[in-house]
Design a protein around this nucleic acid. Sequence first.
RNA 1: GGGCGCAUGGCUCAGCUGGUUAGAGCGCCACAUUCACAUUGUGGAGAUCGAAGGUUCGAAUCCUUCUGCGCCCACCA
Length: 874
Amino acid sequence: MIELPSRYDPGAVEDKWYGLWESKKYFCAKPDLKKKPFTIVIPPPNVTGILHMGHALNNTIQDILIRYHRMKGEESLWMPGTDHAGIATQNVVEKSLAKEGLKRQDLGREKFISRVWEWREQYGSTIIRQLKKIGASCDWERLRFTMDEDYSKSVVDVFVKLYEKGLIYRGSYIINWCPRCQTALSDEEAPHHDLQGNLYFLKYPLKSNPDEFIIVATTRPETMLGDTAVAVNPKDKRYKGLVGKTLILPLVNREIKIIADSSVDMKFGTGAVKVTPAHDPNDYALGKKHKLEFINVMYPDGKMNGLAGDYKDMDRFEARGVILEDLKEKGLLEKIEPHALSAGHCYRCHTIIEPYLSKQWFVKMKPLAKPAIEAVKKGKIKFHPERWTKVYLNWMENIQDWCISRQIWWGHRLPVYYCKGCDGVIVSKTPVQTCPKCKKGEVYQDEDVLDTWFSSWLWPFATFKNKEDLKYFYPTSVLVTAPEIIFFWVARMIMSGFEFMKEKPFSDVYIHGTVRDIEGKKMSKSLGNVIDPLEIIKEYGTDALRFSLISITAQGQDVFLSKERFEQGRNFANKIWNASRFILMNLDADKVKVDLCVYFKKENLSPVNRWILSRFYSTLKEVNKNLDSFRFNEAANLLYSFFWHEFCDWYLELIKSEIKNEENQVVMYKILEKFLRTAHPFMPFITEEIWQKLAPEGDSIMIQPWPHIQEEIIDKKAESGMNAVFEIINAIRNMRAELEVPLTNIIDVKLYSSSKAKRELFKSMSRYIKNLAKVNEPVIGEHYTHTKGEFVAVLNEAHAVIPLAGVVDIDKYKAKVGLKIENARAQIKSKESTLANPNFAKRAPLEIVEGEKEKLKNLKEALKKLEGVLDGIR
RNA sequence: GGGCGCAUGGCUCAGCUGGUUAGAGCGCCACAUUCACAUUGUGGAGAUCGAAGGUUCGAAUCCUUCUGCGCCCACCA
């Protein structure tokens, strides 16, 4: 006899079992040629990161996959690690410095970087600890960091390889510049958001006649200081005689030409566009084409520079206001129209991006994209859900070169050196002291670091330290991630895989939804709508967190969360706990040792046991199918309803009175034991806790085999037979509720069926019917004929009948029903008269009238039912 | 401008290749507590599956159009 508390206490067991798994090295994977490998690389969280619901969902899915495949006997490796997250981490450390009143420049590069490392030492393990808390079965001995020495070496190697291949180049282009972070960003790091702005119409006077103007429309008047031309469409009649003439750029009084270019849209604004080649990508192209001057009027921090004349040192948006005022004063501001536009925003600090002309390093992407496109098109790599394929292909087919240099300090420094003597550029894997070209010049290394994603894109292979492991575990199996990083990471890993490994990095990409709050907003600290997974763990337990998260996440759909949703998971864990407690209390250890096969062979399993076994294997089959097709919610919900509604609500209730029967003991035990194994990937802790109590000499549940489907046990006939019994019990319960007969009152029941098989079934199942419906031994008959004073339920090929005599006072019951009927009739009458009232129709709002009509309809239906009941009794 | 997703009981959502009575959780109503579990059990009410067409023996499911919401992409001065 085992004594257990009636509530599952997750806090008391989780750390214990996690510690055991870890100490026994159950998470560790080694190449084993006898086994099939199954590999997942974790999307490395930022070192400074803190676990949020997105992580919880992402990693629960991965853990389910890993545990499932591990139990299926595959050599399963989940490779963990963290990302140095260049800009994000630098910003965090800078913020903490700011509290001391310091800037990173005050420390200098080297000291600042050591500060970041210190920071990492202190906080870098937080996210790892938190991943352990949610039960992640990563091979922690392989923990990697994108700034690890050998990982960094791979980054440098790759840079050099691409450079030597001519796929990396340096050049001056318009890039996305964040004036706050003061660095270049890739296009992906500068997402566009809508803004409500204005279209400003500015007058530029002609040199030949200062009273004559050309009017240009712009959303960014402050850039006019850097204008070097005005462009019109050559077909535009309005400006026919003006092309080639000279304008005086107001405020700076610089001479600029009017040029003609067919790219100018005649319908937009005035059809004349100011050209600022150093501050707009379109204008840049125009500037190149027409050989215009490039005048950069801003400092890197977004303030106007020396070329901005009187506006020097003003912030770009401040300058905008002042410039507009000055133009207005001079009568050169024609008008202002509201205009919706969108602008790039820094993905780290949300500052509006400045398109900025500067010298940066780029990767030529088109050649890399080619095999990556092909692989997906040919189905070598599959996206789940499939629709992401299109998103991926669309991006890949229009891919732009990747700006990879960042003007920050935290990250992989570019392996690029410049010679002061001959201006030579040296790209080298190893540090360079003297210029190999001129042999004498002093050399200095490029100050920039690489884009964080330039290291992340190597993750599926650079995380392997030796060739043997790489060969065995690569390509990896599944990548699990959110849609936000398809371009940042997934697409680039596919490219790098083919480029550097000559092989895809993974076979399947599972894209799960974004975690949102119940109003559909993204969870974020600034919105204050965060549900902290660790708090949920504290309150409800890890298994509850995992189970709830999974069961409400439909494939690829966004997840809407509120705290109450985790109650479902907690309640389920508690249900498992109590059912197990019940079984443990009633289990005779010696009886249970009997092999289930003994019963199968004899084919003498009782219908109830045949049914529950069939239901278990049917469920298992579906669970397998759904896990294999990434429908985790379906799998979870199948387990939920099997365990709760079939195993607990029906099976355990059925066998309760015969629980010491050997066959029942064996089946009950086996079902629980197999269920625990099946549920383990979803709820690792509670399943382990119960497993240990159930099979004390057994090893941990996490290294047990996944239950094998016994196809021959799936018996649809047994299932439908029991369903007929359940139908009867339900019907009787239903009638009892209708007649308000309490369960303490055992009543008579008659069952009729013209089918001999059914009659026999009822007879053999009568003890269960008696127990669960609280009735006396049923009287079983062949043909049902309607008799007064009986309450009837019509079933599938059968009738269940409760004789009312002695159960309820027929006259009283009749009177009660009669009263209800009268009541309903009165209500109908009153509703009808309301509706017939012409004043009501005139004055009441339409929805009220409709509502009343609806109510009337419902009342009439209810009346009909009641009249039927009365007919039955009479 | 292009693309994608969503619209199903009061709320939040499942519903895979179209197939008997459209499911769940929460909420609501009634009844039940010496019996594994009130984090429970039993029963119930509540849905013309966003709208309009179409394909089909049959549509929540496939097609077209429309409406509303959300997201992504795009060099919309």
